[in-house]
């Protein structure tokens, strides 16, 4: 499936705030990383996508993106729960997950690492910093990093 350019997903963005999502996409575009980005609006959609259920049950084989950018505070199923289920499932446990959140709360940070997050990034309010941050994440995880 990796050769099917149409369905090929390198970066899965799970974010309920459409502005954050758009800004993230813009940042990725600027760095020519936006060609294979899929944006999902909440945790349950993300799990359906990854596990090939619900709306995504017609997929032949579930897609494993190169990296998942995961927001924590989301309706229905929150980011921590998504992370827990990704790590619990054999087929998805090796996907790198980067938490991209507004929360500086220590308990979120600790809980994320307990659940096996690969990176924890607090979204900077300042635009320049935000742009730089997304660029670096995209470059590192989607281009430089290797996964099994």
């Amino acid at each position: 499936m990796k050769n099917n350019r149409k369905n090929f997903v390198e970066i899965l963005l799970v974010e309920d705030n459409k502005h954050d999502a758009e800004l993230t996409m813009l940042a990725l575009e600027e760095n020519k990383l936006a060609n294979h980005v899929t944006w999902l609006r909440d945790g349950s959609e993300a799990l359906d996508f990854l596990m090939g259920k619900g709306e995504h049950s017609d997929q032949d084989t579930p897609q494993n993106p190169k990296v998942i950018l995961l927001d924590l505070k989301m309706p229905k199923i929150d980011g921590l729960e998504v992370l827990r289920r990704i790590r619990a499932e054999e087929s998805t446990r090796h996907i790198p997950v980067v938490v991209l959140t507004s929360s500086r709360e220590e308990k979120d940070l600790i809980q994320s690492y307990k659940l096996g997050v690969n990176s924890y990034i607090v979204k900077p309010v300042e635009f320049d910093k935000f742009m730089a941050c997304i660029k670096e994440i995209g470059m590192y995880w989607a281009v430089i990093n290797l996964t099994p």
């Binding site: 705030n17 502005h19 954050d20 800004l23 507004s102 979204k123 900077p124 300042e126 635009f127 935000f130």
Partner: peptide
């Protein structure tokens, strides 16, 4: 913080 980021970003 989220709306702030949006204001900042779009500006």
């Amino acid at each position: 913080r989220a709306p702030l980021r949006a204001i900042n970003g779009y500006t």
